[in-house]
């Protein structure tokens, strides 16, 4: 049963002059990791933007649990149902790692009995040391910032994780680590993880690979294994 469906999606820029996505039809299920690949400029980020409701398609539907997301409260959708990991992290630099997560929890409306303990558990899950929790974002490394971004996306336990080039700015080792983390989120926590990437590491660890390069096809990776 698909948690997210994309049906006959069309999107173009410049008032229809530049077609980016044409008749996209994808299905996404819980417990699987999906990689959306393609050359630069093919529309990966655009597709993710459409999926998380930051933009509106010219035609077609994006259905979350059977409901068209263009007809629901998209701010609530982004703060409750999906967690977004941006390519350049998009963390609030004037806050600490802990405060970034607490803010996201506040937007969601979560009120755990011990918020800080909850955040530290998430940090542990994403492999972030507790000592980094109270550091301002600029004082964290790229990999650490990316883990904070992932932690922010996970803090309210969304059903879908969207990650746009999560390893784009990271070294190989960190890249593998992040890929492994995303894989575990899908397999162990039953999340639907959708990653837009041109990284082979991510593509290899994904269960299903969607390619936006022509011909647009879907490949099932039967041999997908998490990288440690």
């Amino acid at each position: 049963m698909s948690i997210l469906s994309i049906k006959h999606l069309y999107f173009s820029y410049d008032d229809g002059n530049t077609a980016v996505l044409k008749d996209i039809n994808y299905e996404f299920e819980k417990g699987k990791m999906y990689a959306i690949s393609g050359k630069s400029g093919v529309g990966k980020t655009t597709l993710l933007s459409l999926i998380c409701g930051l933009d509106v398609p010219n035609d077609g539907q994006i259905l979350f649990e059977g409901k068209d997301i263009s007809k629901i409260d998209r701010e609530r959708y982004r703060s409750h149902d999906i967690g977004v990991v941006f390519q350049n992290f998009n963390l609030l630099n004037h806050l600490t790692a802990m405060e970034n997560i607490l803010l996201s929890m506040n937007i969601n409306g979560m009120k755990p009995s011990n918020p800080k303990a909850h955040v530290l558990r998430i940090f542990q899950a994403v492999g972030l040391d507790e000592s980094k929790a109270n550091r301002p974002i600029p004082k964290l490394s790229g990999g650490e910032q990316q883990r904070v971004a992932i932690a922010r996306a996970l803090c309210y336990d969304p059903q879908i994780i969207l990650a746009d080039e999560p390893t784009g700015n990271l070294d190989n080792e960190t890249e593998q680590s992040i890929a492994s983390l995303l894989k575990r989120l899908a397999s162990e926590q039953r999340k639907c993880v959708i990653v837009a990437t041109h990284s082979t590491h991510i593509a290899q660890s994904a269960d299903i690979l969607y390619s936006l390069d022509p011909p647009q096809d879907r490949q099932v990776n039967d041999n997908a294994t998490p990288l440690h």
Binding site: L54, E75, R76, Y77, R78, S79, H80, V84, F86, N90, L91, L92, H94, S104, I107, N108, R152
Partner: peptide, 14 residues
Amino acid sequence: EIGILRAIGMKKTQ
């Protein structure tokens, strides 16, 4: 900052 807050789901009114 406003762009990030909107992107992670904070409402305009908030």
